[in-house]
Design a protein around this nucleic acid. Structure first.
Length: 636
DNA sequence: CTCCCTTGCGCC
DNA sequence: AAAGGGCGCAAGGGAG
């Protein structure tokens, strides 16, 4: 239960040698950014206690004194530190050198609690305009009499009257944060499982703040090699295409490329895009189109290769290099955002600011290609080894749990091979015959399992046969035709009859309740016109949310359980990729640590944390390496 | 010129 | 009628 004197809210105001450096705490170490004000607020029976102070006029030791006072007070009195988007403020605590104390503290984020209460997926065309969860929006919505207090605040002035005003504003921010967090917390108390899911999630905040502050070390030689390869690839493609009127500008413009291919070359238009807003129809030049056109004109294949080389060079070589160049600490800082998708998953951003003012602080970490030559650019710091734990077959397993499908559940038991099973079904073979052939290295067996894997990964969410055919042809380069795709889809539905049953029952349930929930108790509001244009979208949310959302909750539970172990052994949380968690482990500790961490992960306290016991094991795989590109599976 | 929208595509 | 879901980033094109 919420008890006022167990919480203390805090908030930093920050600045730097450039205004935008105020958002980049890794510049503290280089005197390019600093905190200008720290405010702390507690509620007591006799009134609020306000702490902290103005920092910019103070010597550095005073800043440290205020921070130490906050953290030691919190630790001594077992207070939870409350903030708004608090991972940012935790990064500042860490930037000033208080790692040890920070990791002894509990944190809570009012913004995230608000999300837990209100998040709803966006359905309309206007997807870009998502609800804002800023403190100012919360104040406007819940404390309308206090609105406008943020007007005329200068975050960077050093004039005494401006500074006094800034600090007063900071105290207000902090007080509102505490009031709002308290309100949201009490609201969640009525639904204990939802509150618990939020509290487990909150446990990861200092780990995330630490990772955001530290950033990623990149291997310059690997970046150079990748850049040279992609530049050479692009030049080769361009040399082959230039005689036919292709230039870089043409390939980078769908409109110009369409004009060339369909106008001048006379290739057939096989797919069109219709704008949802204007209804305007354009000729598609996407990779599916190029894949199909390649059968009648080899130039289409080269165009696809050219466009890929250009795009990948920009995204995975130029952007990482630019971020290192920008940050001045030799690192790239893709920023992790907790609970930034409606299912609860994290996302990363690689830029701050918008349009002309954008700054390249990181790169598209979540989009890094799987190819080891791309992933090789990320390396652990000196003396550390990179270790990945990934939740084995995460979505397949949660789909098995959600659908209660007998065959799926059975295939989640130790020693089974779901893709081999599905492959055998498709090939009309006996499961164990295929397993034996796979084990014997029979060359005909592997493609059969591959097809099973494709079916298992693609068909769990109402994918059409046409879409399956496209994925098989374009992604896997399998010459599949529609009848075969239909056969595979039917085989899938026959093999796992619980899955279509789950679809129907889950849709009906969510439609009735108005919300969907994960096995951890995280919810999303799903309301709208179930009979209209939004129907498919609403239904898909109903089906998808428990699977993807539980995966997210599983990741937060894993981080919560690993946190004490990681802190105790000097291990650093590096980043996440939905079902994968990456750590830097001191190299001397690796053997012992991976065994112990895997044990913790394989035995996560689902029942205690969620009040739900998965009916099948939820194992984690472990990979170890000296870069993201050379991770090797380790059997622990 | 800036800003917004659309297309295209990378990962899970 | 038919339709996997979730994101973020790059680039051109067009509106103002």
């Amino acid at each position: 239960m919420w008890v006022d004197d167990q919480y203390i809210a805090f908030d930093f105001e920050t600045s730097g040698t450039l205004p935008e450096y105020a958002l980049q705490p890794w510049r503290v170490a280089h005197n390019q950014a600093w905190a200008t004000s720290l405010a702390t607020v507690r509620r007591t029976a006799t009134g609020p206690i306000i702490g902290g102070g103005l920092l910019v006029a103070e010597p550095f030791t005073a800043t440290a004194r205020y921070i130490r006072e906050l953290l030691t007070t919190a630790i001594e009195h077992k207070l939870t530190l409350v903030g708004w988007n608090v991972a940012f403020d935790i990064s500042w605590l860490l930037a000033y050198g208080f790692r040890e104390l920070v990791f002894k503290c509990k944190f809570l984020d009012g913004m995230l609690l608000w999300k837990h209460l209100t998040v709803t997926p966006e359905y309309d065309i206007d997807k870009a305009h998502k609800k804002s969860f800023s403190l100012k929006d919360a104040v406007r919505e819940f404390m309308s009499d206090r609105g406008g207090y943020e007007e005329d605040i200068d975050f960077h002035s050093t004039a005494p009257e401006s500074l006094a005003k800034l600090h007063k504003y900071n105290i207000q921010d902090t007080a509102y944060t505490l009031w709002l967090t308290r309100k949201f917390y009490k609201q969640l108390e009525a639904e204990p499982t939802r509150l618990k899911a939020a509290l487990i999630e909150a446990s990861c905040l200092p780990l995330v703040a630490d990772a955001n502050l530290r950033g990623l070390m990149l291997d310059h030689a690997a970046l150079r090699t990748l850049g040279e390869t992609l530049t050479a690839d692009a030049e080769t493609s361009l040399a082959a295409l230039a005689p036919y009127g292709v230039t870089e500008a043409v390939v980078r413009s769908p409109k110009q490329l369409g004009g060339l291919m369909y106008g001048q070359w006379g290739l057939p238009v096989i797919k069109q895009n219709t704008s949802k807003k204007t209804g305007k129809v354009t000729n598609s030049t996407d990779k599916e189109v190029l894949h199909e056109l390649a059968f009648i004109d080899a130039r289409a294949r080269t165009i696809r290769e050219y466009r890929e080389a250009l795009g990948n060079k920009t995204k995975f070589v130029d952007a990482p290099l630019e971020s290192i160049n920008y940050n001045s600490d030799g690192c790239s800082h893709p920023l992790a955002n907790v609970y930034s998708t409606y299912t609860g998953r994290m996302s990363y951003s690689s830029k701050q600011g918008k349009n002309k003012d954008e700054r390249q602080i990181g790169f598209a970490l979540h989009q890094e290609k799987r190819d080891p030559t791309y992933r090789a650019i990320v390396v652990p710091p000196q003396g550390y080894t990179l270790v990945e734990f990934d939740a084995a077959g995460q979505e397949y397993r949660w789909m098995a749990v959600a659908s209660k499908d007998d065959a799926m559940l059975q295939l989640c038991l130790p020693g089974e091979d779901p893709h081999g099973y599905m492959g055998a079904q498709i090939a009309r073979e006996e499961y164990h015959t295929l397993l034996a052939a796979l084990k014997a290295g029979d060359p005909a067996a592997k493609p059969k399992r591959q097809l099973g894997k494709l079916a298992n990964l693609s068909l769990g969410y109402r994918t059409s046969a046409a879409k399956l055919r496209t994925v098989a042809r374009v992604q896997y380069d399998l010459p599949m035709e529609l009848p075969e795709a239909e056969y595979i889809k039917n085989t899938y539905l026959r093999t796992y009859p619980g899955v279509p049953r789950y679809w129907a029952e889950q849709i009906a349930k969510v439609r009735r309740l108005g919300y969907a929930e994960t096995f951890a108790g995280r919810q999303v509001q799903v309301v709208g016109t179930w009979s209209g244009a939004d129907r498919w979208s609403l239904e898909s949310t109903a089906i998808n949310f428990p699977i993807q959302g539980t995966g997210g909750d599983q990741k937060y539970l894993a981080l919560a359980v690993l946190r004490p172990y990681v802190v105790k052994h000097g291990i650093q949380f590096a980043w996440e990729l939905h079902d994968g968690l990456y750590f830097y482990i001191p190299t001397k500790l690796v053997d012992k640590a991976i065994a112990e961490m895997k044990f913790l992960l394989d035995n996560l306290p689902y029942t205690k944390a969620w009040g739900f016991t998965p009916p099948v094991p939820m194992p984690w795989d472990c990979k170890v390496g000296t870069s993201w590109g050379n991770l090797k599976e380790v059997k622990v």
